[in-house]
């Protein structure tokens, strides 16, 4: 049985896996339903607001809107999940056992990440599917017509964007994985991820232009830009703080390769004393 498949077997049954999935599904699902409820509760809506709600809660535009929601939540939850699970390889001493059995350290580290990446991608797909269902419910609550969810062009584009979101998400989680494995600490991984997430949200508003330019190429930004989402009507596509989707995808892959290379080298060199 290959290491990656065994990895899925050992991580699938962890409570952290189920809890992370429940949190992601609940957040995305409830927020989308609440959007519909909020719209229906408001007395009068400005046209632009109405178009935003319609974009999010009717099809086929909901494919983009829900993916934007899903990708942002999956990013932070996926990062924390990967850091948590990877950290326990150190704290439980299971990496030590594998190495003492003659397992290649770098191979083990890469295979472990591959298992986690597969689980994260499954989580993304499940959350997205639940999000689409929640958007339909939210749209119904808001009094919108469902639209055309079966539009083959839109479905095809949605699948491509989902795949791009998956690549971005895996690249993003590889950052949390690398920090945890290099620092041999769950808290280092989780703490850095949360800190970076907060800075990535509030940073661009306060930072000098030169630093903002760097922010565009950091994992959170490229993971988001790589999807190539069309915003709601009236929004400016390709804002000053984003980069071309294809370039973003390339940068995301570069981050993924870089993070895994750093992890592999660090795990090969480190002393396992715990």
């Amino acid at each position: 049985m290959s290491l990656a498949i065994v990895g899925i077997r050992k991580f699938w049954t962890r409570s952290a896996t189920l809890v992370s999935l429940i949190i992601a599904v609940a957040l995305v699902g409830l927020l989308l339903i609440l959007e519909g409820f909020a719209y229906s509760s408001a007395s009068k809506q400005a046209d632009v607001q109405k178009s935003t709600f319609e974009w999010l809660l009717t099809f086929p535009s909901a494919y983009d809107g829900v993916l934007a929601f899903t990708a942002s939540f999956a990013g932070i939850i996926g990062l924390i999940y990967v850091a948590t699970v990877a950290g326990s390889e150190w704290t439980w001493g299971t990496l030590k056992v594998a190495v003492a059995r003659g397992q290649s350290r770098s191979q083990y580290a890469i295979a472990t990440f591959a298992s986690l990446a597969i689980l994260v991608l499954v989580g993304l797909v499940v959350t997205y599917a639940v999000g689409l269902l929640a958007a339909a419910i939210g749209g119904s609550l808001a009094g919108f017509k469902l639209g055309n969810p079966g539009d083959p062009t839109a479905v095809g584009q949605a699948l491509v964007k989902l795949a791009r979101a998956g690549i971005g998400l895996v690249a993003l989680t590889s950052l949390g994985y690398a920090i945890t494995m290099v620092a041999k600490s769950q808290m280092a991984g989780i703490g850095t991820v949360i800190g970076y997430f907060i800075v990535s949200i509030i940073g661009p508003a306060f930072l000098p232009d030169a630093v903002k330019e760097v922010f565009k190429y950091l994992p959170f930004s490229v993971a988001s830009d790589a999807i190539g989402l069309q915003g709601p009507p009236g929004s400016v596509s390709g804002s000053a703080n984003s980069i071309d989707p294809n370039l973003a995808l390339l940068v995301a892959v570069a981050w993924l390769i870089g993070c895994l290379a750093v992890t592999a080298i660090a795990v090969e060199r480190t002393e396992i004393t715990g």
Partner: peptide, 22 residues
């Protein structure tokens, strides 16, 4: 001290570690 995946059974732990090394 012996190290295992605490959420797995004894059998699954041996199967999982049996995939490492030889």
């Amino acid at each position: 001290s012996p190290s295992f995946y605490p959420h797995l059974s004894a059998r699954d732990n041996l199967i999982v570690f049996g995939a490492t090394g030889r």
